[in-house]
């Protein structure tokens, strides 16, 4: 039973981890908590449907289109909203992200209707049994893709020029500027990167739940996972995501399915009260 919970929990956990990474990747470099991230995730899933149903694109092309547009949308938010707000209080920027999220959500409700749309699975949703465990190919695909994206993210940060500039800004923005890195340029990249991570999560999650304008509420799960991970650690965000997915599934099995969502909020509140640095966060030296 425990093994089954682990297997089932990692599917949701992988998606939460991607969303949590989206929050942390952006926040570490810009200090902005993007409360519209969940709605961007919904938008990306809708773009896949629009690409397939209305433009007649093949599935893969629709996904590519969605990822590209999502990255572009992220960069656009930075250039069009965040950059003009530079110098204003952080709270103003965070409220702007809430407004962006609401605009996306209500825009989708107005244009695509409030009813759910079907989204194709990556692999068959028909379960099979292996060694006493019930496995679903579609869910395994979710976990596989999520892990591949995480590995790609870490490889990018470690070995590419693009990634090294991001790490430098994470470490010390002033230091980055004086070695010739354009800090506003890195901020734009981070918005794009965060949006792509959310897009992948949205495209993976949409077939498993239902694609409606309110799918963005799983953004809150990702947020809770990021808080669990300390909000400034990328490995912490991943661990927080998987932990939340597994705990939630366990609560669904041992308590009741209605308890599943309550668990995330309870963990979120408990973590903020008892472990404000999360499970993996480190103390942060702030400049005065």
């Amino acid at each position: 039973m425990l093994a089954q919970i682990l297997v089932s929990g990692v599917t949701a956990g992988a998606v939460y981890a991607l969303v949590a990474l989206g929050f942390v990747v952006l926040h570490r470099g810009t200090r902005v908590v993007h409360f519209g991230l969940g709605d961007q995730l919904t938008l990306s899933a809708y773009i896949v449907v629009i690409g397939q149903v209305f433009l007649g694109l093949p599935f893969a092309a629709a996904i590519l289109l969605s990822l590209l547009l999502s990255a572009g949308f992220g960069v656009l938010i930075e250039r069009g909203v965040m950059r003009p707000l530079r110098g204003s209080p952080l709270l103003v920027m965070i409220i702007a992200t809430l407004a962006i999220g609401a605009a996306v959500r209500e825009g989708l409700r107005a244009s695509m209707g409030p009813l759910p749309w079907p989204v194709p699975f990556l692999l068959s949703p028909a379960p099979f049994t292996l060694g006493g465990l019930v496995l679903v190919p579609a869910n395994l695909a979710v976990v596989g893709v999520a892990l591949a994206v995480m590995l790609a993210l870490f490889a990018m940060l470690r070995w590419t020029r693009f990634g090294r500039a991001i790490v430098a800004v994470y470490e010390n923005p002033t230091g980055a500027a004086i070695v010739g890195i354009s800090v506003p340029g890195v901020h734009a990249r981070l918005w794009g990167l965060s949006s792509v991570l959310a897009a992948v999560a949205g495209i993976l999650m949409a077939p498993l739940i239902t694609l409606s304008p309110d799918m963005g509420t799983i953004g809150i799960k990702g947020f809770a996972a990021a808080i669990l991970g300390g909000f400034n650690s990328l490995p912490g965000a991943i661990a927080g995501g998987f932990l939340l997915g597994i705990v939630e599934t366990g609560a669904g099995v041992y308590v009741s399915t209605a308890m599943k969502d309550i668990v995330s909020y309870a963990l979120l509140i408990g973590c903020v009260l008892l472990l404000p640095r999360g499970l993996f966060g480190t103390a942060e030296a702030r400049k005065v």
């Binding site: 790490v167 430098a168 470490e171 010390n172 002033t174 230091g175 004086i178």
Partner: peptide
């Protein structure tokens, strides 16, 4: 710079 502004980790 005076504060050195290195990349600490």
């Amino acid at each position: 710079p005076e504060r050195r502004e290195l990349f600490p980790s």
